[in-house]
Design a binder for these strands. Structure first.
Lengths: 167, 167
DNA sequence: TTAAACTTTCAATAATAATTGAAATATAGA
DNA sequence: TCTATATTTCAATTATTATTGAAAGTTTAA
């Protein structure tokens, strides 16, 4: 497989993989492109490479920066802005886990808490609602805790330990 | 908060939570409804409760059954089919993790493997592509392993241990 | 075997989400 | 300040995905 083919394969795959997780194709592809690029790229270069419009590029770069996984770089003597991805996968995972927790898990936990602590009126259906939402809250809370902690381990010794333990 | 409000809140929240994860609203809402229902429900009842069409209900029930988290039930002396959700959250998590791994993670791993083992032509960009996809493959593989194992623990002792260890 | 009760399928339609492109805005150097 | 260069915004458009509903298919019991 030559470079061009491999690169396109990775970018395309990453793009459709993103869609499965509620991330739009352009955003995922821009990230993929920057992730494997040895140098930072200008907006022009990104547009050209992925064949997408200026507006699209600008909006999705912003989102990637909001997620904290893409950074702006200024080259001295250059007017243009350049963009680079977080290259360390450990840090990438940490950042994504953190943001997903903040944006998605935490709000869901709040609702589960609210519903599961409603007043029990004694009916079967209320009891079931409370029981099930409580169980779900507990599970989600545990999963969130584990995820964030694993991903935040300093030198990921725990990950290595776990893998050995579980494999 | 009264039963009706709490129920609607849960179903609505679960619905939009689903959308964030590439699961359509109707599918997530049907699951939510069955998950908190003390009894199994017929298609009519689901349609009525969620105000969705017969076709939509049928298709999404099928998908939920494909995911292995909703089951058909036959009541004796009844012509209609009834549907019930997996009620045990541990089993629910196990099933979802298993399916996501099979449908999403594994195919992505295959591509990452393929790209990261391409022939190194010595150029900087090829080296970077190989290095980054290799790192991503390793991370995703580890995450997948940990996830599946944790969720598959017999009595979830390890989860409890981990929570204590990490909290 | 027939017919009623029920479920599935799928082309058409509706709803939602992504993308474009040009105008508005910002910025840095002359 | 002025101008050229670069970026952002956002209404309009296009693409994608979900939903409907009626026809076709299936099942069961008389």
């Amino acid at each position: 497989m030559d470079y061009q083919t491999a690169k396109e394969k990775f970018i395309t795959t990453w793009g459709s993989f993103g869609s499965m997780w509620g991330i739009n194709k352009a955003m995922a592809q821009i990230h993929a492109l920057l992730f494997i690029s040895p140098t930072s790229l200008s907006m022009e270069e990104i547009m050209e490479e992925l064949q997408i419009s200026r507006g699209n590029t600008s909006m999705n770069l912003r989102q990637l920066m909001d997620w904290g996984i893409v950074y702006k770089e200024h080259k001295t003597g250059e007017r243009k802005e350049y963009f680079a991805s977080e290259k360390d996968v450990q840090e990438l995972a940490r950042q994504i886990a953190k943001e997903r927790s903040r944006r998605e898990i935490k709000p869901a936990l709040r609702v589960l808490k609210e519903v599961s602590t409603m007043k029990d009126d004694g009916t079967t259906k209320t009891k079931e609602l409370i029981k099930q939402t409580k169980a779900l809250h507990e599970l989600a809370d545990t999963a969130d805790t584990i995820m964030n902690n694993i991903v935040n381990q300093d030198q990921n010794w725990i990950t290595k330990t776990l893998v050995k333990l579980l494999k």
